[in-house]
Design a protein around this nucleic acid. Structure first.
Length: 514
RNA sequence: GCUCGGGUAGCUCAGCUGGUAGAGCAGCGGACUUUUAAUCCGUUGGUCCUGGGUUCGAGUCCCAGCCCGAGUACCA
């Protein structure tokens, strides 16, 4: 047997519990039995308590021992399972066989146990299971964090999310809400005749957004690959192929900064609908948000900070130039000279060179954070929307919108450019910009995507919804890390790899081991 | 990247102008058959993030670094 301190943070408390696990084995009880199935859950027992008591029915539960309140020949503890928690009462002359000895000599809070017994109500009116059977399901050798302050240190909570989930019930609640939101979205999309698809995350040519990619390498093909920054160009190939109502809910990767609103890998819903335009898509956004909020929260109203967001109401729609005009106190439009905008804004940063950029700059610096209630901003400069169609009669304006909630960009959609020659020209412009030093512009024209458009793509509208940010709003979370189970962190300890990165390249080629 | 804040026992935290490192909970031993922060008695436990420096003496002051957070920058 491996001798005791075999992990760097082992201490005497853990040693003590390993001793207990060993003592259990000596007593003929395996601390890690093969199965420990239970028929009920805590929430279910609480819900059915009346009938269970009336008919003296036995229930069985599997869960974690939380806080133990111990008396000489009896004890109470709370048992936590995936559904919630319920109190268990263990009494020497009631529990059978080895049950009491198991509790008395070996049981610690944090252990996983199986309990079977009848339901009763205590003096203090709490529905409680009186254990007739108590079995160890799995011994925990690390103790739980402190019982009423919980587990607060932010770094530890992210690095050891499993402890966070045990110690801070509201954390699990947030992730349940997120999960329900995504389920509701899928349900609604399926009802609306959308088909869920999966497209490549490893791409030889990346595109569909302006972002720096992660780079990786395939050994046998000796090929550079990018982790996708967006699925857009593949999804629209499917639209060309006749699958003109498709969606994908999955990860994108952008090699950029980290903040309360940015994680390098993040989840997007992206969808395309043949026959629609951006206007029609905004209607759809209202519907899907309502359904998602209802599914996640059971109501269309979400509390976020001080504000209440109403997802049932129609969402106001404002042209970007209107928002900017309001902010500047003077009417401006896409043909307003940059000098004039600069004058009204009291100066512009050096990197802002065109009047379109100037308007977007004013929007981002003065308007965005004020858009607390859900608001659509529409009509974007064409120059910053290389995959979008122009508004009819306004060749310089893209038929595009973004949805803002709580000052965050939550969704982005547009009428899809389906003119192959114009698309080719837009790609070529981007490649030029890359040569001129724009690291976020794709360096290569995706010729196959243009070829696809040459076969003809029905007029279509596309939509991307940032699932993580939407989850923030639905769970009242101020940071994106509160809705991502394992946000990206630097490794806790810097490991020295003397033999270089190639030593890891073949990792994972073995047979999958479960 | 920059600015500010944080890192002390398993957990939550205190530690003043530098003077032997503390509490509560958890753990361990004991009492206790309806408690829920159970209670009562006793008790173990520390690379004070790391490395330098100043000092008779550093958790505390100085320098460098690591990790986390907030803000800012970046992010069609």
């Amino acid at each position: 047997m491996t001798s005791f301190p075999f992990l760097p943070d082992h201490n005497h408390l853990i040693e003590e519990r390993y001793r207990k696990a060993e003592a259990l084995r000596q007593a003929g009880i395996t601390p890690y039995p093969a199965t420990a199935e239970a028929a009920d859950t805590a929430a279910d027992v609480l819900a059915r308590a009346g009938a269970l008591m009336e008919f003296h029915e036995r229930v069985s539960l599997l869960g974690r021992v939380m806080t133990i309140r111990s008396f000489g020949k009896a004890a109470f503890f709370h048992l936590r399972d995936r559904s919630g928690q319920i109190q268990v009462y263990i009494k020497k002359n009631v529990v059978s066989g080895e049950g009491f000895r198991l509790y008395k000599e070996f049981l610690d809070s944090g252990d996983l146990v199986r309990v079977e017994g009848k339901v009763f109500r205590t003096k203090t009116d709490e529905i409680t299971v009186e254990a007739a059977e108590l079995q160890i399901a799995a011994k925990a050798v690390r103790q739980l964090p402190e019982k009423w302050h919980g587990f607060r240190q932010v770094e530890a909570r992210y690095r050891q999310r499993y402890v966070d989930l045990i110690a801070n019930p509201e954390v699990a609640d947030a992730f349940r809400t997120r999960s329900r939101a995504i389920s509701a979205m899928r349900r609604f999309l399926d009802e609306e005749d959308f088909m869920e698809v999966e497209t490549p995350m490893m791409q030889a040519i990346y595109g569909g957004a302006a972002a720096r990619p992660f780079v990786t390498h395939h050994n046998t093909l000796d090929m550079r690959l990018y982790l996708r920054i967006a699925p857009e160009l593949f999804l629209k190939r499917l639209v060309v192929g006749g699958l003109d109502r498709v969606y994908e809910i999955n990860r994108n990767f952008r090699n950029e900064g980290i903040s309360t609103q940015h994680n390098p890998e993040f989840t997007m819903l992206e969808l395309y609908a043949g026959g629609w335009n951006a206007d029609r898509m905004m209607d759809f956004v209202e519907a899907i948000l309502r359904e998602t909020a209802m599914g996640a929260l059971g109501t269309a109203k979400a509390v976020f900070g001080e504000a209440e967001m109403d997802f049932a109401a129609p969402i106001p729609r404002l042209r970007m130039v209107e928002a900017v005009s309001d902010a500047l106190g003077t009417q401006v439009d896409w043909d307003t000279p940059i000098e004039r905008i600069s004058e009204l804004a009291g100066g512009l940063p050096e990197e802002v060179r065109t009047r379109e950029e100037a308007i977007v700059h004013v929007f981002e610096s003065r308007c965005e954070e004020k858009l607390q209630q859900p608001t659509f901003i529409y009509e974007f400069p064409k120059s910053l929307s290389p995959l979008a169609k122009s508004v009819e009669g306004k060749p310089e304006v893209a038929d595009r919108f973004e949805l803002y909630i709580a000052g965050m960009e939550i969704a982005n959609g547009y009428s899809e450019l389906n003119d192959p020659r114009e698309q080719y020209e837009r790609f070529a412009e981007q490649a030029e910009r890359r040569k001129a030093g724009d690291e976020e512009a794709p360096g290569e024209v995706d010729e196959d995507y243009v070829r696809a458009l040459e076969y003809g793509m029905v007029p279509a509208a596309g939509l991307g919804i940032g699932i993580d940010r939407l989850a923030m709003v639905l769970t009242n979370s101020p940071s994106i890390r509160d809705v991502i189970l394992f946000p990206l962190l630097r490794p806790a300890k810097r490991e020295e790899h003397s033999d270089g990165p190639s030593s890891l390249e073949d990792a994972g080629t073995g047979e999958g081991g479960g």
